[in-house]
Simulated scan of single mutants.
Amino acid sequence: MAVDSPGPGRTALLALDWGTSSLRAWRVSTAGRVLEERHRPWGILRLPEGGFPAAYASITEGWQGQPDAPVAAIACGMVGSRQGWHEVPYLSLPLDLNQLAGSLTQVGGTGLRLVPGLIDETRDGRPDVMRGEETEAVGALERLDDTAGEILLVMPGTHCKWVRVSNGVIAGFTTYMTGELFAMLTEHSILGRSIPTTAPTLPADDPARRRAFDDGVRAAASDGLAGRLFSVRALVLTGRLDAALITDYLSGLLIGEELTRALAAAHAGSAEPGRIVLVGDPAITTRYARAFATLGRTIPLELGAASVRGLYRIAVLAGLVSATAGDSAC
């Protein structure tokens, strides 16, 4: 007996981005529209009682469908790491989207399929790895009208990824620990001790904050990071930098260093980097866009976060979801 396909507004996919510190889940329609979103502080290192199975059951409660018509489920991120629920081997580069979709691993006893991470061993034998960002890259490419030629996806975060894409194929990537370095320096170094804890927070578009950030970007570009880090303390001690602006200046230093090194490496390659696209939380990508402008570079296109779109696209390519029209895609 034939079964009618669910309409475009029906739940077709449970999509999870399961990282080290948090877990996000979306209920997605057959056409890729997000119907509902949930967030829990249940990263792989901070699980509730009952571990992975309990966390998964809780965050998808009421979403799983009926026993005779289960809803497909897919997850990306550190859940597939050695410390995760089920380890999924890395895939080597170069890699196209069909290879990624064809390499999903199912967690035993569940219908949840995990997206593999990627390993890049193309640079002098020095490996680099990612888990989760590959899915966001898929979502970002899906949003672009044209993926021909060379594209450089810049994906800021705790560990920023610069992903090289050639004609739709992921060709390589480099990781910059900018976000983690910022947290370490502000929380665990002498530089952070001068940050006032009682001073009023200035709005993000305050001119003084913008100037401090720009000064940090230019300082890193001209002299490099190592020789400029201690200037944070020296500038405050001499009254040339307001202590309330330390985080902005330091952020500029770190992002300026990242952009200077990454762009130099991109141009040193055999091929031009082509289009540069910023992917991720606008609160962070906006800062990167400003740094590009401060350095006199063309400001990249900003796409916003793309994990759920990537999960949906991989699920469609893997045959887990039959995409339908008639609904706005996520």
Results as ranks from 00 to 15, higher is better:
S307V: 14
T197G: 15
I119H: 06
G132S: 07
A226E: 11
R275E: 06
S251W: 01
L100Y: 00
G216S: 08
R313I: 00
G65W: 09
P196D: 08
L95E: 05
A72N: 09
A283T: 12
T110I: 11
A55Q: 01
I170M: 03
Q83M: 15
T147I: 13
A140T: 01
L295C: 06
R24W: 11
T285F: 11
L253A: 05
P156Q: 09
A212Y: 00
V138E: 05
R290Y: 06
T197Q: 12
A323N: 10
Y312K: 05
C330G: 15
Q99L: 13
R275D: 08
P8I: 08
V316W: 00
I255A: 04
T122Y: 02
G224R: 07
T197W: 03
G269F: 05
L253T: 02
V138P: 02
L114P: 02
T294C: 07
V163F: 04
L104H: 02
M184G: 15
V232L: 03
E257Y: 09
L35W: 12
D124C: 12
E142V: 02
V236F: 08
R126T: 14
V169D: 07
A291C: 13
R24G: 08
G326P: 07
A2L: 15
G326A: 05
D327E: 15
E36A: 14
D4A: 15
A268H: 14
R131N: 03
G7N: 15
P116H: 12
Y56R: 05
P207C: 12
P196T: 03
D4W: 08
G239R: 06
A221L: 07
G224P: 01
D124W: 04
G125K: 12
G84P: 06
L250F: 11
T298I: 09
D248H: 08
V321C: 05
F230C: 11
T11F: 07
D146E: 12
S29Q: 10
T198I: 15
M130Y: 03
G109R: 14
L278Q: 00
P48K: 07
